[in-house]
Simulated scan of single mutants.
Amino acid sequence: MDVTQLAIERAVATIWNRYNEPLSLDDIADSAILSKFYFSRTFREATGTSPGRFLAAVRLFRAKNLLLETSRSVTDIAYAVGYNSLGTFTSRFARSVGTSPGRYRALSQGGLLALDARAANEGSRGTITGTIRIPETDKSVRVYVGAFRTPVVEGFPVACDILDSSGAYTLTGVPPGTWCVRAAAVSMSDHEPRPWLRKPVFLGRGARLVVRPDKTHASQHIGLRPIKAVDTPILLALPELDNWGAPALNGVA
């Protein structure tokens, strides 16, 4: 492992260990012992996103855990993960996870966590196809493939497909624009009874892909690999994409 890779891993460890502090870019770069400008470029190359976005993803990931594992109030959790404004925390959580903190907790506690993404496909017209290659493993896995607006897997994907083995996928209803195709494989033999807490064992990402109004088909081939220390946490509850397009649940605010 080269010196720069070790430096990025130090920075990532700093983010995970100090996410509840008011970390600045200078603070994170100092932990890597790199200049701020060189650090920002190499961090993005290694992780696929900026240090600030990585920090935000870790904070929201920790907030998800606290919502599911404790009875602390949403306000307490917001401050515990590094936010100094409840409104900012709530809006960013909803944008990244797909629902408000309170609704996320209520749905998960009732075993009803499901995603309704039908509205995301209205008025869309593109298709992305490709193949997924899963490394050899003795585990039974399920692969979730989605098109996202940013490199961080957050919010509802604009389109989704699910595979139980290596093979072809199809993402339909993709609007014209620039998209990031991301894939994650979750172990089906994981003994965690709450599917939204199961952690991916393999990840894969493609380059940014453009769906044009005059060319509505694009292709992206992705090879999965074991998770790394520098991978951003996944904010979307991937196994719940099994309910893709299901009717929204009633009676839960």
Rank of each mutant, 00 (worst) to 15 (best):
M1K: 05
M1N: 04
D2G: 15
T4S: 13
T4I: 14
T4M: 13
L6I: 11
A11I: 02
V12M: 04
A13Y: 01
Y19W: 06
Y19N: 03
N20D: 14
P22L: 10
P22F: 12
S24G: 09
D26I: 07
A29W: 02
S31M: 04
L34H: 05
L34G: 05
F37W: 07
Y38G: 12
T42E: 13
T47L: 08
T47N: 12
G48E: 05
S50P: 01
R53D: 15
R59S: 03
R59W: 00
R62W: 00
A63N: 08
K64G: 01
L66A: 10
E69D: 14
T70V: 10
S71R: 10
R72N: 09
S73A: 08
I77F: 08
A78Q: 06
F89N: 06
R92A: 01
F93K: 13
S96T: 09
V97Y: 03
G98L: 08
T99D: 11
T99F: 07
G102S: 15
R105D: 02
L107A: 09
L107M: 15
L107E: 14
S108Q: 11
S108I: 01
Q109M: 10
G110N: 10
L113T: 01
A120H: 10
N121D: 05
G126R: 09
I128P: 07
T131L: 00
I132P: 07
R133P: 02
R133H: 14
E136L: 13
E136P: 04
E136I: 13
V141A: 01
R142P: 02
Y144R: 02
V145I: 15
R149E: 05
E154G: 09
D161P: 09
D161I: 10
S166I: 05
A168V: 01
T170I: 09
T170Q: 14
T170F: 00
T172G: 07
T172W: 00
V174S: 06
V174N: 07
T178S: 09
R182Q: 07
A185I: 08
V186H: 01
S187N: 13
M188A: 13
D190K: 03
H191V: 11
W196G: 01
R198H: 11
G204M: 10
R208F: 04
R208D: 13
L209G: 04
V210Q: 12
K215M: 11
S219H: 09
P226L: 03
A229F: 03
A229T: 13
V230L: 06
V230F: 06
T232H: 15
T232E: 15
A237C: 13
E240G: 02
D242Q: 07
A248T: 10
G251K: 08
V252S: 03
